[in-house]
Every structure is written in C-alpha cells, then in structure tokens.
Amino acid sequence: MEFCLFLGCNTPAVRPDVEKAIRVSMDELGVDLVDADNYVCCPAFGSFPSTDEDSWLATSGWNLSIAEGKKRDILVQCGSCYSSLRMGREHIMHSDEKRQRVNELLEPTGRTVCGSSRVRHVSEVLYKEITPARIAEKVKISLEGLHGVVQYPCHTLYPSEVVGFEDSPREPKGMRQLVEALGATVDGYSRELQCCGGAGGFMKSTPEQAIEFAKTKFDSILEETKADFIAVSCITCLMHMENVQNTLNKRVGEERYKIPVFDYNQLLALCLGKEQKQVSAICNVSRDKVHQFIANAKVAA
C-alpha cells in the first residue's frame, strides 16, 4: 500500500507529533508514504471555497495533480483538508466544464488534473484497508483496562455519498472498532455524533455559544462514560477539544474537564511501542495518566 501524504498546515506546524505518529505507524503497518512536495492549502473552507470557485478548484487541482503525478492516492488526516479535497475533486470530476477550467488555470504551472488519484482519510485506510483485526495483531501494548470515547470527524461522515466510507453513516463504527483494536473499552455516549464545533467560524463569531455547545458534549462524556481518553481523527477536533476543556475549567473554577485527547494515530503509535516523546509529545490537557499506563504496560511486556 502506498499513498501520497498530504499533511495540511495545522498538523506539521502545530502538532508535528501527530505527523510523526502517522509516519511511524504507517511504516510499521507496511504503508509506504511519500510527501506531497510543494503542496498548498487544501484549501480550507473559509478561504477560497468562500470566495470563488476558480480559486477553490484550482487549488484543489494543484494538490490533486501532485498525487496524480506520483500515481498515488492522497492520504489525509485533517478533517477539513479531507472534505475540501474530496468535495473539490467531486466538482472537478462531475463537471467537464469545471475540469476544463481548472486545467486551463493549471496549465501554465505545468500541471494537469484528471481525477486518477482518490482522496483517502487516514481513519478510512486503517479501518477499511488495514482493518482493526490486523491492527490488533500488530500492537505490542494493549490498552485493556482503559476506557475511551471516540469523536468522529464530521467531515468524514457527511455528506455520506461524497466523503463517507462507513457502511452506515448514521451509525458509524470505524473509530470505535479501531480503538477497540488497541484493547481499550469504548464507552458510547448520547452526543457521540455531535460536532466538536471547532471548525469554521462558529468559535470566531459567537465563542460563548460555541463553548456552551461543546460543553454539552463534555458533560455527556463525563456523565455517561468512564472515559480515560478521547480518541479523535482530525486535527481540528484534537486542538479544539483540548482548548475548550481548559476554557471550561477557567469558567467553572475547578479542574472538572481534564480528559486527555489523542489523535488516533498517536494511540496507535504508542501501542505499537513507539517512543512517547516523539509521537505524543504535545498536549494542552495532561496525558500523564494514559502515558503512565502505557509505560507500565511496556515494562510488563
């Protein structure tokens, strides 16, 4: 299996440990990754997709053409990148007119796009290609004894016919099965499918309400589960769900919200025995408890 890795901006710039986790895990699982050289912004929905179709699709086309040149599908971790690239590709592929226009814009750059590379989310590849069963075989450290909850990236769910890969988009199972493959118990909760609220302009335009909205999700986790961690699979979910907990704690004046948030690839890398200081180095909500658990398990193993 081989992919062209598209990292976007937040992961390499703010959370490079997640990038590291993806690289080492994929290597361990036999997936060959090459970087998308000279890639640009996906583009984020708040940028070109919000100004005009030409700049949106030309930028999508720029990125897609890199993977097409390498004859590989694109592998993405960030939810927004995934959705933007996939929707961009959808537009390019379903309209001859748009494809023509994009290629017209790309031509002077020596690029062309024909749609030969697909856009894949890292959780899809893990869930559908590598499969939880193989992951379970591969892991060296089990999270058995820990309880986790999962946060599905909305961008991998909706609209299902464009971005989806779950058999049942309204009842997704991928994240749960992937975390279970690591040995942890996954607790369900009523707001499992609720958006983290971190993407787009909601936080910027009405932060009070956005935090209140996220609070309902965290309260639901606290009330209904024994979660030792939250597993996400989108850089925005990761960053936002940490930040909101800290904001909420300031607001309530106590450390009530302190569930560590991991990108799934980080948990996977840890369970594959990778160095914590490399694959899970950066966080805003303490991960000590989980790290300690893994360190103990490592010693035991």
């Binding site: 929905f45 708040g46 919000s50 927004s80 959705s83 909305c154 961008h155 769910l157 909706y158 609209p159 299902s160 971005v163 988009p169 309204r170 958006c195 609220g197 971190g198 993407a199 787009g200 302009g201 909601f202 910027k204 335009s205 009405t206």
Partner: peptide, 11 residues
C-alpha cells in the same frame, strides 16, 4: 460565516 462546515445539513 459562522458555519462549521460539518455538512450535517447536507446529509
């Protein structure tokens, strides 16, 4: 501009 782009509405 407040839209979070989750696309639930679309689904």
């Amino acid at each position: 501009w407040a839209c979070v782009s989750c696309s639930r509405c679309e689904e």
